[in-house]
Amino acid sequence: MKIELQGKLAIVTGSTLGIGLATAKGLAACGAKVVVNGRTQAKVDKAVAAIGAAVPGAQLLGVAADLASAEGCDKLVAAVPACDILVNNAGIFAPQEFFDTPDSQWQHFFDVNVMSGMRLSRAYLPAMAAKGWGRVVFLGSESALNIPEDMIHYGMTKTAVLALSRGLAKRMRESGVTVNAVLPGPTLSEGVEAMLAEEVAHSGKSIEEVGRDFVKVLRPSSIIGRLASCEEVANLIVYTCSEQASATTGAALRVDGGVVDSLV
């Protein structure tokens, strides 16, 4: 299978690091013009340079905008009024004891993880439908189904993302526009690497070894028994954005290493 996305404009939010960066790189390699987004111009410029070095001839546009607010979403839409592919990847996570998590933290997680994707989908979907073609992908998480007791506030937002994705897929029925959610499991992103850095320093083990220990203790149902790479997750996202995925919509597509112990 060869995925061709020439002539398509893709926006990947939160694409300066991790899964977002790997997704932007994968879409660019398939020929799409890719909009790279992050909160600061310096991070956006660095990501654009990295993708350009990895994918010679890549068509790239960088837009710095903090999508935690309506104003930040408006800034991105003003810079890029229409797109063919929208990957709602922007998101945050952090372990925190439920009884120590204030209202402001709950609201911030909801604004970043849910409202950003809602606002951008509301802005971009009508034009996709008018053209008869479009792809919207939300980044969920296995934590949407297995709510982690140390990240209840995070798990709640990812469950909301699944509801939003499924509902929008129904709303866009028979339009040529698909809406799906991709659910990663534990993934070796920069955020997870930072979370495990203290254990790496303390144990003297490699990040891969510490990652395996993390998975076996905290996600013992994992079948692969390790952290996935950002590229492994991005591969599924890129496919979901392709012409070949035209009959896949309203789905929660797991790339969780088998963490979710379910037949469907």
Rank of each mutant, 00 (worst) to 15 (best):
V264L: 13
A129F: 00
I152N: 04
E190G: 15
L76W: 02
L125P: 00
Q107S: 13
C30R: 12
L183A: 09
R226I: 08
V63K: 08
L9I: 14
A54W: 05
L139T: 11
G117V: 09
V136K: 08
L162E: 12
R212C: 10
R119D: 08
V35F: 04
M151Y: 10
V34D: 06
A65L: 05
K33V: 01
A228S: 15
D103K: 03
S175W: 08
A22T: 02
S262F: 03
M1S: 14
G257N: 09
S203R: 05
V233M: 03
A247Y: 14
L263V: 12
A94R: 12
V136F: 07
A234G: 09
A251S: 14
F138G: 07
S246K: 14
A24Q: 07
F110L: 12
K158I: 01
M115P: 00
R226L: 04
E208Q: 13
S229G: 13
N146W: 04
I3W: 03
V114G: 00
A94M: 11
S175L: 08
S15Q: 05
E97Q: 09
P186N: 11
D111F: 07
A144M: 01
E209L: 03
A54M: 06
A163R: 13
I3F: 09
A64T: 09
I147D: 00
V215S: 06
R135A: 03
S203L: 06
R226Y: 07
K75A: 15
A194R: 15
A10Y: 04
E198Q: 13
E193F: 00
L60N: 05
S229V: 06
A144G: 15
L263E: 04
E97K: 10
V87G: 01
A78W: 00
G72P: 08
G155M: 07
L76T: 02
L168C: 00
L9S: 05
G52W: 07
K33T: 13
A163I: 00
L145C: 00
L183F: 01
G26F: 05
V182G: 03
V200I: 13
E209M: 03
D111Q: 15
K2D: 11
V238T: 13
T240D: 04
I223N: 01
K8P: 04
F138E: 05
A247H: 10
A54P: 09
L86C: 04
D103Y: 09
R135I: 02
A201D: 11
N180V: 02
K131L: 04
S143M: 12
A22K: 02
G258S: 10
G250N: 02
R219Y: 15
H108I: 00
D100A: 12
E149P: 00
V233P: 05
G62R: 06
G167F: 06
V260P: 04
L61M: 14
F109W: 06
L218E: 10
E174F: 12
V137Y: 01
K46L: 14
V35L: 03
T249A: 03
